[in-house]
């Protein structure tokens, strides 16, 4: 499903954020991408998200070969990806429901379908009761689950999360990780980047461990 082949990413000629990273992720598989701050986790996710381009190496995702993907097709790629950020990135003047609806809206889906899918996604992550709240009325845990609902609303090929628990306490972090695992059990393909190596290893999922841009460990 996801194939990362000998990917290197350099910033200028001094910083090598990723060095010859290779791995594959099957459909329905889940991995934690771990490593200390600065190890290159965000960089790898940004490359998969086609926000940046590798210096060398190739990434392909389902039917998309990112090296050959023209700029105009990037929105199309992203409609098949879900992305969760550390800082939630919800639109403050939209309700939780409207935030979750956004990816479906921009994809031009019919209103009835949108309503159905948003309800499903919000129920899946347990924030359906909060659908009419605005982001400022939500707790951190709730806000991140709304962001997660938004990321899965379009039933993505691959769900990416970059330090999704970075702004959450321990309890909420664990709950959120469990939620990712639950979504994975329901069929989602998932990569969660986190520097919380210990907590990540509690869930019995595959661990991709980066150190200074090098994939040091790939443990199933």
């Amino acid at each position: 499903m996801l194939e990362v082949k000998e990917v290197t990413k350099e910033y200028g000629d001094r910083i090598t954020a990723l060095s010859n990273v290779s791995f594959e992720l099957e459909k329905g598989e889940m991995a934690f991408l771990t490593g200390a701050s600065g190890a290159g986790k965000s960089t790898l996710l940004r490359l998969i998200f086609r926000e940046e381009f590798p210096t060398s190496g190739e990434i392909s995702l389902g039917p998309y070969n990112l090296a050959e993907l023209p700029k105009s097709k990037i929105p199309d790629l992203r409609r098949h990806l879900g992305y969760v950020f550390q800082d939630f990135r919800l639109i403050s003047e939209r309700t939780a429901f409207e935030n979750v609806a956004l990816p479906l809206e921009v994809a031009g889906k019919a209103l009835r379908y949108i309503r159905k899918r948003v309800d499903e996604a919000m129920k899946q992550v347990g924030v359906w009761q909060r659908r009419n709240s605005y982001p400022r009325q939500l707790s951190g845990g709730e806000a991140q689950r709304v962001a997660l609902a938004r990321a899965i609303a379009n039933e993505p090929l691959l769900l990416l999360a970059d330090e999704p628990t970075g702004n959450l306490d321990m309890k909420n972090s664990r709950d959120l990780f469990e939620l990712f695992c639950k979504l994975n059990l329901q069929g989602a393909t998932v990569i969660v980047a986190t520097h919380q190596v210990a907590m990540a290893s509690e869930f019995g999922k595959r661990i991709l461990h980066l150190e200074d841009g090098i994939l040091k460990q790939d443990k199933k």
């Binding site: 990135r89 956004l102 921009v106 379009n154």
Partner: peptide, 16 residues
């Protein structure tokens, strides 16, 4: 700016 960035993340086209 922030909303535009989010739009791009969720796959909004340039035209949109």
């Amino acid at each position: 700016r922030e909303v535009v960035e989010i739009m791009q993340v969720v796959g909004a086209s340039r035209t949109y």
